[in-house]
């Protein structure tokens, strides 16, 4: 029922304006951060020749700024983490939403959300003292501080995000879909796997992308357990060797770098590349959803 009294119209106008300003300012802040990143990082691409920039040696103390090992290190660790986390996460979401009895769901959902709140430095310490020795002893590799140990911890960190978003996507599938599946004579399992999960597919893709964003941006835990060796992860055993990520490099080196030096610009340059990577991931996620919608699929 529309209220036409002038006082309310005014307060409504004020509220609307406020909300609009807040909404646009968040976009503005993102733009400003991006501009800052560009201002501090772009000089690098003029100071260091491009072939050296994408070379294989990262020795900032000796003016060697080859970023390739760092980029590949981040990609390797993130992809491995996602390969571990996605099947587990989606399966857990399906279990929580479709199979678990009501009381179990009431316990599981909040517990999983609590997992997301564990500080990454705690997980890093756990990884350093428990996971890394375990990896070394069970796999017989020279050191446990490897890309694999990092990926395990990252997978653990991405899981709550993936589970909770995927669960929401499953939850949004209309009851009529399930009823129709069951009415056609499909079993509970067939209904879940052939009807409900495909219908929630775009939501699940978003869950995976968000989990990936969490993994690629993670710093502290990764810095503590991947060994931070800037080596090219090209051989087959690279997963079980140390690796250095872009985020850990920025965090480890930003503390003592002289402002305005080539090294300082290089760290911001890494920031730009990281930003573009996550931006591409998000764009890919958005376009999947968009395509799906246009074809008349669900959500």
């Amino acid at each position: 029922m529309p209220n036409t009294r002038p006082r309310n119209r005014w307060s409504e106008f004020a509220l609307e304006a406020l909300i609009r300003v807040l909404g646009f300012s968040s976009i503005g802040f993102v733009l400003l951060i991006f501009l800052f990143l560009l201002r501090e990082g772009v000089p690098l691409f003029f100071e260091v020749p491009l072939d050296q920039l994408f070379g294989v040696g990262w020795y900032p103390t000796f003016n060697l700024f080859g970023m390739l090992p760092l980029i590949l290190g981040s990609v390797l660790i993130t992809l491995t983490a996602i390969v571990i986390a996605v099947p587990l996460g989606v399966a857990t979401a399906v279990f929580v939403r479709e199979a678990a009895p009501g009381w179990a769901r009431e316990i599981l959902k909040p517990t999983i959300e609590v997992l997301a709140g564990i500080p990454s430095v705690v997980l890093g310490f756990f990884g350093m003292t428990v996971v890394a020795p375990l990896v070394r002893e069970t796999l017989g590799v020279p050191t446990g501080l490897t890309a694999f140990a990092g990926a395990l911890i990252l997978a653990y960190m991405a899981l709550p995000t993936i589970i909770s978003v995927a669960e929401d996507a499953l939850d949004a599938v209309p009851k009529s879909y399930r009823d129709a599946g069951l009415a056609m004579g499909a079993t509970h399992w067939q209904t879940i796997w052939r009807v409900v999960v495909p219908a929630a597919r775009s939501g699940i893709v978003v869950a995976v992308m968000l989990g990936m964003g969490r993994a690629i941006g993670e710093t502290m835990a990764v810095m503590m357990i991947t060994g931070n060796a800037a080596r090219m992860p090209l051989s087959l055993d690279s997963l079980f060797r140390p690796a250095r990520t872009m985020t850990a490099t920025i965090a480890a080196e930003m503390g003592e770098v002289a402002q305005g030096s080539v090294h300082y610009h290089a760290l911001f340059g890494i920031g730009i590349i990281l930003f573009m990577l996550t931006f591409t991931i998000n764009l890919a996620a958005a376009s999947t959803i968009f395509k799906k919608r246009r074809r008349g699929g669900l959500r």
Partner: peptide, 22 residues
């Protein structure tokens, strides 16, 4: 230069933790 396989630890504690157990 240091070999690219060198693990760069963020602290003295990181080095002693790894030396202690590896």
């Amino acid at each position: 230069l240091f070999s690219p396989d060198t693990l760069l630890m963020p602290s003295s504690e990181g080095i002693s933790a790894e030396v202690r157990q590896n």
